[in-house]
Design a protein around this nucleic acid. Structure first.
Lengths: 207, 207
DNA sequence: GCGTTGTATGACACTGCGTCAACTTAACTT
DNA sequence: AAGTTAAGTTGACGCAGTGTCATACAACGC
């Protein structure tokens, strides 16, 4: 349905929209780099725009504020991990596979994307943080999946809200602990977390 | 050893130091209130000082910057919980008591102090956050105590670093989950977390 | 009393965000 | 292909908020 010679997918975009999305990408990439280097509060919108060939005012043609672009970056990352987690869990027929897949996928993601995980909002903390509101929200899906798994008899009946929070808490804190080590080992971390959760809930179920 | 009629403990302070500490406390209290209401970025130093009878410049006689007073507040809170946690664990002769005391004390503290737990640095998130760097650092002591407990045979041998991170992660995330509920129940949360950890590590030990 | 030293004050300099009127460029019209 | 419109670009500007500083003031020692 396209014209011939449409190698590039922006072939049939007008020049306008072409440069628009080009510039948008330019700004976003610059912002990611600068935020990663200086953290939120110490980067200025001018710093970001200085890393592009554009002028100061142009920034606001693409993003309403410094806050908005920061959100955009974090959303982007969070949105990437959600389908991965869902997908990883989907085929799991046993409790062990279900829980392990969740942790392993998350830890692998953190290792792969840690440069993109924007550092804290705070003054000069260059620490990698994974417990952003966007990622936390992503664990809402986990709650649904846990409910299904319990209904299907894969997992024993326990308080779902607490269990979801527990898995999220383990995922966040073990991620950061893992990344602080010389050689991050997602397999070991996932194994530990899985054993903890499985042992814990099987103990609870017996009561 | 004091003079008679020394009801107030600033009796033998000079007037100077008396008003100094008075003003300091005044500013700190005002800051706590204003930060709690508007969050970090939306409160100005002028907002803080306006809640006291002092003038703008005076603020900087007591604190170097807005950031510094924010840190001071967080440190103060973090420093309060540490001895409580140590104390709570100290007498515990069984694994269950040891772990439960840790969680229960932490959750009770969060409930009691939640107004003082300054909300996130971020734009307008009024969410209570307990995983500040200062509080996270406090869990270093937990690691030492876990090591002792394992040495004493109270807890089975497991990876201490992962276990510490796990307990911290559970404490943080369950705290926030607990505070989001209509009626926070530290007992139930602590019970859940304890069962999870105990069941988990006893499972690991058997391997 | 009287110098000295620490404190209070608000005007000011400075930095950084977000806006806007003037200008440029793309797309469309006839 | 010249003319019209719509969209994008630009940097100077307005404004808000931080932190500083010269001046004024109050406490302390003598």
């Amino acid at each position: 349905m396209e014209e011939e010679n449409s190698r590039a997918n922006d072939r049939e975009l007008g020049r306008r929209e072409q440069t628009r999305s080009h510039n948008q990408a330019l700004i976003l990439a610059a912002a990611r780099a600068v935020f990663a280097e200086y953290g939120y509060s110490r980067t200025t919108v001018r710093d970001i725009i200085r890393a592009t060939p554009l002028a100061a005012g142009t920034f606001y043609n693409y993003y309403k504020s410094k806050d908005e672009i920061f959100q955009a970056i974090r959303d982007e990352t969070a949105l990437k991990v959600r389908p991965l987690l869902r997908e990883a869990r989907s085929g799991s027929k046993t409790a062990d596979k279900f829980i392990y897949a969740t942790f392993r996928t998350f830890f692998d993601f953190v290792v792969a994307e840690h440069a993109a995980l924007v550092t804290g909002h705070s003054s000069n903390a260059m620490h990698v943080r994974v417990d952003t509101p966007e990622i936390i929200a992503g664990f809402g899906e986990l709650e649904e999946d846990l409910a299904s798994a319990i209904a299907a008899g894969i997992l024993p009946r326990v308080d779902i809200k607490y269990l979801t929070a527990s898995i999220a808490g383990l995922a966040f804190e073990l991620s950061e602990n893992m990344m602080d080590r010389e050689k991050p080992d997602p397999e070991a971390a996932a194994r530990f977390a899985t054993d903890l959760v499985l042992g814990g809930i099987s103990g609870m179920a017996k009561k």
